[in-house]
Amino acid sequence: MIIKQLSVFLENKTGRINEVTSVLGNAGINLSAFSMAENAEFGILRVIVSDPDKAYKLLKDNHFGVTLTEVVCLNCPNTPGALSKALHYLSEAGVFIEYMYAFSSGDVAHVVIRPNDINMCIDILRRHSLELMAAHQLYQL
């Protein structure tokens, strides 16, 4: 249930995101999900790819600031209130969410969550019979 995610630190200048996607694409690595956050001077590209270990090495070899972090991906109904219910369970148990992002595929919303305690997060979501996506499933999207 634990998924490896890359966080790539980029200067805010034209073409930097393209450089990352070119390095990965030329190596046959597919992006399954991503999020971009920025401030005035730099951005953080968070990305889940088909081969995270290979992507990490490639990006390091190409002088990108990159880290591997662990996240979980919750599959929940793409309906009003479904995410709120899951987040309530986590909040009630004291799990802090550092960040999250989502994408949908029809009637299912896939929510990538970076909690402060990943094992507790997984335990709570499972205890409430919520569906978590396996890493290999997300890597293959």
Score class of each variant (00 low, 15 high):
I2V: 11
I3A: 12
I3H: 12
Q5Y: 01
Q5H: 04
S7D: 14
V8Q: 04
F9T: 11
F9I: 09
L10V: 04
N12V: 03
K13C: 03
T14F: 00
G15T: 05
R16S: 06
E19L: 00
E19A: 01
E19P: 00
V20D: 02
S22E: 09
L24H: 01
N26R: 03
A27M: 03
N30C: 03
L31K: 02
L31C: 05
A33R: 07
F34Y: 15
F34E: 13
F34A: 13
S35P: 08
M36T: 14
M36Y: 15
M36Q: 14
E38A: 08
E38V: 08
A40V: 10
A40D: 09
E41V: 01
F42T: 07
I44C: 14
I44P: 14
L45A: 11
R46F: 12
I48N: 08
I48V: 10
I48C: 05
I48F: 00
V49L: 03
S50I: 05
D53T: 07
K54A: 06
K54D: 06
A55R: 03
Y56P: 06
K57E: 14
L58T: 02
L59S: 02
D61G: 00
D61T: 04
D61Q: 02
N62G: 00
F64M: 00
F64I: 00
V66I: 10
T67D: 11
L68I: 05
L68Y: 05
L68R: 04
T69C: 12
V71Y: 03
V71E: 05
V72F: 11
V72M: 12
L74K: 08
C76P: 04
N78G: 01
N78V: 07
T79H: 00
P80C: 02
G81N: 01
G81T: 04
L83A: 05
S84T: 12
K85A: 06
K85F: 05
A86L: 01
L87S: 02
H88A: 10
Y89T: 07
S91N: 15
S91H: 13
G94M: 10
Y99E: 14
Y99T: 09
Y101G: 02
F103D: 02
F103Q: 05
S104P: 04
S105A: 08
G106F: 14
D107I: 09
D107W: 09
D107M: 06
D107H: 11
V108W: 07
H110W: 13
H110F: 15
H110I: 12
H110L: 13
V111A: 07
V111Y: 12
R114K: 15
P115N: 11
N116R: 10
N116S: 10
D117M: 13
D117H: 14
I118Y: 11
I118N: 12
N119L: 14
C121S: 09
C121W: 05
I122V: 15
D123E: 13
D123T: 13
L125M: 12
L125W: 10
R126G: 11
R127V: 05
R127H: 13
H128A: 03
S129L: 12
L130T: 04
E131W: 02
A134G: 15
A135S: 15
A135Q: 10
H136N: 14
L138Y: 13
L138P: 11
Y139L: 13
L141W: 08
L141A: 08
